[in-house]
Design a protein around this nucleic acid. Sequence first.
DNA 1: AAGCACTCCAACCGCAGGGCG
DNA 2: TCGCCCTGCGGTTGGAGTGCT
Length: 289
Amino acid sequence: MGRSQCCDKVGIKRGPWTQEEDTVLVSYIQKHGPGNWRSVPANTGLMRCSKSCRLRWTNYLRPGIKRGNFTKSEEGLIVHLQSLLGNKWAAIASYLPQRTDNDIKNYWNTHLKKKIEKHQLATTGCTTSSDSNNGCPEIMTSRCHNNNASGNSCHSNLPSSDLSSSSYASSTHNISRLLQGWTRCSPKVKPTAPDQDLTCHGIQMKVDQESCHPLFNEELKQLLPAWEEPSAEASFYGSQSTPACADGKKRFDAQNPPLAALENWLLDEAARQVDLSVGYIDSISHAFI
DNA sequence: AAGCACTCCAACCGCAGGGCG
DNA sequence: TCGCCCTGCGGTTGGAGTGCT
């Protein structure tokens, strides 16, 4: 289990990616598909380590990534799942196919964690760390939220393109241009599998349903409302299948809560999800004011 | 206007674990 | 079975941007 030494080499460029580097990386992946990251720097001439290439792709260049403000539904789902799974960002991200684990992690650390800690302090006087459920018994899940929904101070639903940034690396438009013509979710997509259209940064793409997370279907039908159709997904997880995402890797392992149980529980909540995602967050944000 | 403090997030670091010879 | 290679994951950092005094 040796540690990769790829980033220890001298001459490896670090820091923000340039447009040229992104172009090189995207065009290479368009040709060869993601994976075999070790060979990417060698074959492209990029002075980046393989890790950096993979990270840039998975966290920024990969099709289907939604950037910008998190919706209330997404916030609610993140809070909900974090309370269940802990800091299993990859697992949580599998339920938010348009968000990367890094994005979710950042958002949690910069927004939600503070909100929840503040709320915990205000409501119980207990300053439990929201990274674990070991503190206050009244951990922040939908099971303990009250419904004093009211006005909110959460993020507006601005499209990501409204986000302004002067740096190249933050420009979704640049990425969109790079991804023109990209039509696959993953190189592992079976060519014969039924495809599904997906819009990424305004670019129409096709996504293989089989290779993506089951809840990816129809983009979760705008996330939580998707759970109005629990039967198929419940049966899917009822067999304790391991959800696989576009890269085909397992998203959960034995250390995680049984997915069937989690799914069932979440699906049981389906009828309350809209209220959860909006009312719950409303109640939180209202309490923080 | 300048300096300082704070926020946010892209990127990095190091470990874990699976695959394979 | 063992050890190496490679990738994935979660925690952390650094710097740009923003707000405050």
